[in-house]
């Protein structure tokens, strides 16, 4: 039983790490800001969840488990909020998502970062 829990925990932690790596690849390779945020945010939260689950199984039921649960709660609150704020800021500065092969953005706004002040939009 202990052996099984050990291996399950290790596998979950490894899966979480792999998911995070996949997210990093997505953040580098995806075509526009919104899909990149999507890749980074989802895998970040999901990977952390898997890793925390795995580490909790590895640590056994103790005070460590409670601390892991609290850290998980914190990540579940902050990571999606950060992704939302990022996407919100991108949308607020007038960045349009790329749909299929067509980018709707005019060429000069392609860089994505602030080219001028957000003019009240």
């Amino acid at each position: 039983m202990a052996e099984a829990i050990h291996w399950t925990g290790g596998t979950l932690a490894l899966l979480g790490a792999l998911l995070t790596v996949a997210g990093a690849a997505g953040a580098l390779r995806f075509p526009d800001v919104y899909t990149r945020i999507h890749a980074a945010s989802l895998t970040d939260t999901g990977g952390a969840t898997l890793m925390m689950l795995g580490l909790g199984l590895l640590a056994g039921l103790s005070l460590v488990t409670l601390k892991l649960a609290l850290a998980w709660l914190f990540i579940m609150l902050t990571s999606p909020t950060a992704a939302h704020a990022l996407a919100n800021a991108a949308h607020g500065s007038g960045l349009r998502p790329q749909i299929g092969l067509w980018r709707i953005v005019p060429a000069q706004a392609e860089d994505g970062d602030q080219t001028d002040d957000g003019d009240g939009a």
């Binding site: 914190f74 609150l77 902050t78 909020t81 939302h84 704020a85 919100n88 607020g92």
Partner: peptide
């Protein structure tokens, strides 16, 4: 108004 998510999350987090 579209900062409502940030506000809710911050209200939860600041006391913690």
């Amino acid at each position: 108004d579209h900062h409502v998510v940030l506000r809710v999350a911050a209200k939860l987090l600041i006391p913690v």
